[in-house]
């Protein structure tokens, strides 16, 4: 790895950053999808009648049990068998998002169950509907309690976005491969830069979530254990 390789790489860093933006878009997409479905699955697992609970558990079991790369391939190549064309980016968001939702549902379920049932009872005694109780009493507390676990999930899926490389999404790994395919000596410096980018993002993300956690902190409502 020569100084020359580094100096050749330097002007290409913006291309890598372009790729990284795609990773961040993937991340935003999959985390949002995972959050919405994860909360829904957790609520079903805690509150819904048994058949729905069984469905939610089956969903969780499937998406936690199949490797990410296999999910990516299933979501990318699967729909085309039925004549549905799906972009690699969308397939990646769906595959990784559903997978993340299964893990996020675990975090939220634990948080929901940590809230004393007496609070729901008190809200019901005021005449609040079930949905009102979930919205005004359960979720504001459960989401706070979830932040610590959620920062783990964030770190994990941030790095998983590079797997979208496997179905042809032009993200940072693919950009790095383009560079190094034409100029092999760039390989090591290019992937060192990619590694650094993820190290910085992981740190920055966790710092941000930590900040959010402190800002939302309420006495008596701390994540335990």
């Amino acid at each position: 790895m020569t100084l020359e390789a580094w100096s050749q790489l330097w002007p290409k860093v913006p291309v890598l950053l372009q790729g990284l933006v795609v990773n961040l878009e993937l991340l935003a997409g999959l985390l949002s999808l995972g959050l919405v479905i994860g909360v829904a699955v957790a609520l079903v697992e805690v509150y819904a009648p048994r058949p729905f609970r069984a469905l939610a558990l089956a969903y969780e079991w499937f998406f936690r049990g199949v490797p990410e790369l296999v999910l990516l391939f299933l979501f990318y190549f699967g729909p085309s068998q039925f004549g549905v064309d799906i972009s690699a980016f969308l397939a990646a968001v769906l595959a990784l998002g559903f997978r993340s939702s299964a893990y996020q549902s675990q975090i939220f379920r634990g948080a929901i169950q940590a809230i004393s049932p007496g609070q729901s009872l008190a809200a019901r005694s005021l005449g609040m509907s079930r949905l009102g109780v979930i919205r005004h009493v359960i979720l504001p507390q459960a989401l706070r309690l979830s932040l610590a676990g959620w920062s783990n999930e964030f770190s994990s899926v941030l790095k998983d976005t590079t797997l979208a490389y496997g179905i042809g999404v032009v993200e940072v790994m693919r950009q790095a491969r383009y560079l190094t395919a034409r100029n092999f000596p760039l390989a090591l410096p290019a992937f060192i830069v990619v590694a650094l980018m993820f190290l910085i993002l992981t740190y920055a993300g966790n710092w941000g979530i930590g900040l959010l956690e402190r800002r939302l902190r309420v006495p008596g409502l701390e994540a335990r254990g």
Partner: peptide, 17 residues
């Protein structure tokens, strides 16, 4: 009906957040 009947619990059951 419940909104017209107050209920005070042994364990208070205040909303923690």
């Amino acid at each position: 009906i419940r909104s017209q009947i107050g209920f005070v619990f042994q364990d208070f059951n205040l909303f923690t957040h």
